[in-house]
Amino acid sequence: MTEITENEDAHEFRSEAVSLWRITFAPLIWAVHFAACYGATALVCAKDGAVDGLRLGIGIGTGVALVAIVWLGWQAWQQWDLVRDRDWENDQGTGEDRHQFLGHAAFLLAVISFIGVSYVALPALLIGTCR
């Protein structure tokens, strides 16, 4: 029998013990990247029309965003720990399954964010004008 005051999970799987926010980091990067692309384009096209600089900037920003997402995705992949225990579902009511589930969800969100960021960067690659 364990006491409720003993917090055995808190040490072992501390990373998300207080918050769900972690799984949204990758989509948040997508959101920031998206808003920055849109804002910068609106500004450049309305003010001076320096499209080449804009495209370069979006390219650099996209690179940074993708690297950050890959890094988050890699961390989430390790947290999911699929290779070791081959557990795809993580459907038990244990601290370990909760920990791995959040890793799984964060990993999948990193994948979709990677795709989203790549899609949003395509216009800057393909379109060379504000018109």
Binding site: F34, C37, Y38, T41, A42, C45, V51, I112, I115, G116, Y119, V120, L122, P123, A124, L126, I127, T129, C130, R131
Partner: peptide
Amino acid sequence: GLPQMSLAFFSAASEAVVIP
């Protein structure tokens, strides 16, 4: 009449949302 590039960002995101 927004800039073409701006429209294309939203077009791309609209296609991306189909995935999830």
